[in-house]
Design a protein around this nucleic acid. Structure first.
Length: 556
RNA sequence: GCGCUCGUAGCUCAACGGAUAGAGCAUUUGACUACGGAUCAAAAGGUUGGGGGUUCGAAUCCCUCCGAGCGCACCA
């Protein structure tokens, strides 16, 4: 019996109680069924009695008793207990619980997918790092978390587009170009420019590419033209490098949106016109302003500067409108904590367009990644060239370990990465624990074939009566809800944490229950049925790892 | 000064407002005739930064103080 089936049964019991006049409350639409922390409390528990007690005007325990009496009659329910202030603890028949193993195997890669997000069109923007240098650890975190989140939201039936806002317009790109040019001439990076080996590499490639194409040496051009060559070619090379790094990291975007486009296409003008019609524009001091204070922002924002140039924020306006016009009803943007100051104006903009903040536009703020060496924080600086890049991290621990380590923590917490420690003791990463469980089951399945244990010969869920099996089955049954919750809360780390727990349940079960007979012992239906459970576990581990963009190895 | 985010075991981190706050690493002790020991069993480790409040119940919500990070441009 699945948690959702149990939840439905509980609702039916409560309605019966109301119909019989035993209880005077309105039955909630959704009843939470959760796994108790303590195993002794049964397979599942609900606190619905505690929640209904006040409305019913009865002590919680009395409501719980009413529910327990009816629930005990439901087929598949073995026993029901009332505990503590009014929790209802439920234990299922082994057979009813064990059916889940077959359901999972039959659902295969589809197990865990739901339809709660069906019909939603979600645009998820993440990374969006400027093409002035390679991706650093912060961008790497958003790549891992954002891509996983995209997979998770898609698993709830929503249509998800991954998008990268490519900032190829403005002053920092000019600084990047000047830095390249300076390096190509053998000079120091400008005061406000960028340093590091990659600048030298790219500068050299710009010159080499020009020579290969039979173009004049950029260094021989007049200053402005030379800088333009280094700007255009340098940005392209840098961006290709970023794309390649992301691809190697298992992250591919559906749309790379160029900031330049909103400025050249007239999109900014259209957005301003629209806002003017809606009455949110002020003209003052020769500039055009969004009157965002009226919509909750700290201060009004300049859109068009008094020199006639569009402010950076103008691009945001046009870009948001563009996403909405492309049909996305949910625009989600992941930003680092250093950009949290944008939230106010972005939400005000959303409201100005007549949309609903936090519904049509969501901004997820993630905390920073600190680089640590010998227990001491190391500051990363592009100019000094002391950045640790995505490729450094991947070189140190590999894609799987890197993605997992970054995705298993809530983005609300800053995380510390000690590269030296990771290289030395890469087995610290819990990803190996989860992957090992998957590989171990794969080994079992290989051995089972050789030992003559075949799933096709039998499936008798009542034989899954060991305590470790009840615990494992309960964990397996939670998978769809874990995904749904991770999607709803935008918290991919829940999937990782769940997998660690599931792997733990599996390892404990493995220690207690054999799938293939020992020595010359005969093959029984118990072995065959356990093979179903092993396969079900492997399915869920594999599906879960896939949501994190981590491989599920058959051997390690 | 104002604002946002955060403060949980020695370390890195979990915990829809729920029961005795949990894992991993590190430490200590067991299980190697092992379906893969990258495992399992057990011990130890906490006033959830301090103090108030809300309620059947608070790490979680509210107030306040302390501490940390990050923001507060007609820069991008």
């Amino acid at each position: 019996m699945t948690p959702s089936a149990l939840s439905t049964a509980i609702r039916a019991c409560l309605r019966d109680a109301v119909a019989a006049g035993d209880l005077a409350v309105s039955v909630p639409e959704e009843i939470r069924v959760e796994r108790p922390r303590q195993r002794e409390h049964g397979d599942w528990a609900t606190n619905v009695a505690l929640q209904l007690a006040k409305a019913a005007g009865r002590p919680p325990r009395e409501v719980a008793e009413l529910l327990a009496a009816r629930l005990g009659e439901v087929p598949g329910v073995k026993s029901v207990d009332v505990a503590g202030p009014g929790f209802v603890n439920i234990t299922l028949d082994a057979a009813a619980a064990g059916e889940l193993a077959r359901d999972i195997v039959e659902a295969g890669s589809g197990f865990g997918r739901t339809q709660g997000g069906a019909g939603q069109r979600v645009n998820l923007e993440f990374v969006s790092a400027n093409p002035t240098g390679p991706l650093h650890l912060g961008g790497t975190r958003w790549a891992a978390v954002g891509d996983s989140l995209a997979r998770i939201i898609a698993a709830t039936g929503a249509d998800v587009t991954r998008e990268y806002y490519f900032n190829d317009h403005g002053a920092q790109i000019d600084r990047f170009a000047r830095s390249l040019l300076a390096r190509a001439r053998g000079q120091e990076a400008p005061e406000d420019g960028y340093g590091g080996q990659y600048i030298a590499d790219i500068a050299a490639r710009v010159i080499a590419d020009a020579a290969a194409a039979g173009e004049p040496d950029p260094l021989g051009l007049p200053e402005a033209e030379a800088q333009e060559v280094f700007r255009a070619r340098g940005v392209d090379l840098m961006f290709d490098e970023i794309k390649t790094s992301l691809h190697d990291f298992g992250v591919d975007f559906d749309v790379y949106f160029h900031e330049n486009d909103v400025h050249t296409s007239g999109a900014v003008d259209r957005a301003v016109t629209r806002l003017r019609e809606l009455g949110h524009i002020d003209d003052a001091d020769g500039a055009v302003w969004l009157r965002s204070t009226a919509l909750g922002d700290d201060k009004d924002r300049v859109i068009i500067k008094s020199d006639g140039e569009a402010a950076y924020f103008a691009g945001d306006l046009a870009y948001y409108l563009d996403k909405r016009e492309r049909g996305f009803d949910r625009v989600v943007i992941m930003l680092g904590a250093d950009h949290h100051g944008y939230v106010g104006r972005m939400m005000a903009m959303c409201a100005a367009f007549g949309d609903t903040p936090r519904e049509n536009l969501e901004i997820l703020i993630g905390q920073m990644v600190n680089l640590v060496r010998d227990g001491q924080p190391v500051r990363m600086a592009k100019r000094a060239g002391t950045i640790v890049t995505m490729e450094d991290l991947v070189d140190a621990v590999g894609v799987d370990a890197a993605r997992y380590a970054l995705a298993r923590s809530s983005v609300d917490s800053t995380i510390d990465i000690d590269l030296d420690l990771l290289v030395k003791r890469s087995n610290d990463n819990p990803v190996y624990y989860v992957q090992y469980a998957h590989a171990r089951i794969s080994g079992i399945v290989r051995n089972a074939g050789a030992a003559g244990v075949a799933m096709a010969d039998a499936f008798d869920p009542a034989l899954l009566d060991d305590d470790t099996e009840a615990v494992l089955l309960a964990a397996l049954g939670e998978f769809p809800r874990v995904i749904a919750q991770a999607a709803e809360l935008r918290e991919p780390h829940r999937v990782a944490r769940y997998l660690e727990e599931l792997a733990g349940r599996f390892h404990k079960w493995y220690d207690t229950c054999r799938v293939t007979p020992r020595g010359e012992d005969p093959v029984t239906d118990t072995h065959r049925t356990r093979l179903w459970l092993a396969e079900a576990t492997r399915t869920v581990l594999g599906n879960g790892l896939d949501l994190l963009g981590v491989s599920a190895p058959e051997r390690m």
